[in-house]
Design a binder for these strands. Structure first.
Lengths: 132, 132
DNA sequence: CTGTATCCCCAGAGATACTG
DNA sequence: CAGTATCTCTGGGGATACAG
């Protein structure tokens, strides 16, 4: 029996998970990754490795709790690595894994889209408010 | 003075909005669109116009409240149209606008990514649980 | 069929204080 | 600097009932 090729494996994986199903693991994963903090953290780290403080500064308005929580979840899912340098004071660096970079590529389009189409959305809202 | 070309306008828009800023409208928009229901609704409608009941059936587990709420928000932002046919019983069709189709193209990558990389994520979680 | 209107509840998010 | 631990509290989201 020949080994399945890439296209066959891709098709199988497509069948394996379906986010339209409520109980599918991919539904839960979709819920996790569709999050503004995830989007912004990944995007910030796409520039390269960063420390906790740097991330907090770049991602304005994120609380320490949410930042840590987001970083922990992304680490758990293998999307980023957490490297501790036991100096005094402590130094912790976060960096995307290849899997994280892959997701970041998709997510960055979302952030860009929001920034690029903001005017169109605001116009639509004004139109809607007038018709309403 | 010559009219700005497409590339210049694109650059200006990029400067105009920045989701890293807490108070930027695009931050709020990013928060709105990074949502699993938005992702699933857009993806379902990419197949073509659909009725409320069809959407509810395809998107398993969505409550009526969340579905309506999501549809209203997307309509408000000009991402889909809501067409009422005043028959008895009532018939309501939802369809993506060009702007909605554009966003859907980005979002569909996210759903696909979750389904395609579910195995890798699950493996990472097992690895993390063991190391933990 | 396609919704609104209500009630209710708890997870999630901020704020604050403390530690290695 | 980089967190953890707690507390509080709001508002997101489910369930239910009713209406055009």
């Amino acid at each position: 029996m020949p080994a399945p090729n890439a296209s066959q494996r891709r098709r199988e994986r497509k069948i394996a998970y379906d986010a339209f199903m409520a109980t599918c693991p991919s539904r839960q994963l979709l819920d996790t990754i569709t999050d503004k903090w995830v989007c912004l953290v990944l995007n910030a780290l796409s520039r390269g490795s960063m420390r906790h403080g740097e991330l907090a500064r770049i991602i304005a308005g994120v609380s320490q709790k949410m930042l840590t929580q987001t970083l922990r979840a992304l680490e758990r899912d293998g999307l980023l690595t957490r490297v501790v340098t036991p100096t005094v004071p402590l130094r912790v660096d976060y960096a995307l894994t290849p899997l994280g970079m892959d997701l970041e590529r998709q997510m960055s389009h979302l952030k860009q889209w929001a920034e690029m189409n903001m005017d169109a959305i605001l116009a639509a809202r004004r139109r809607h408010a007038r018709t309403q």
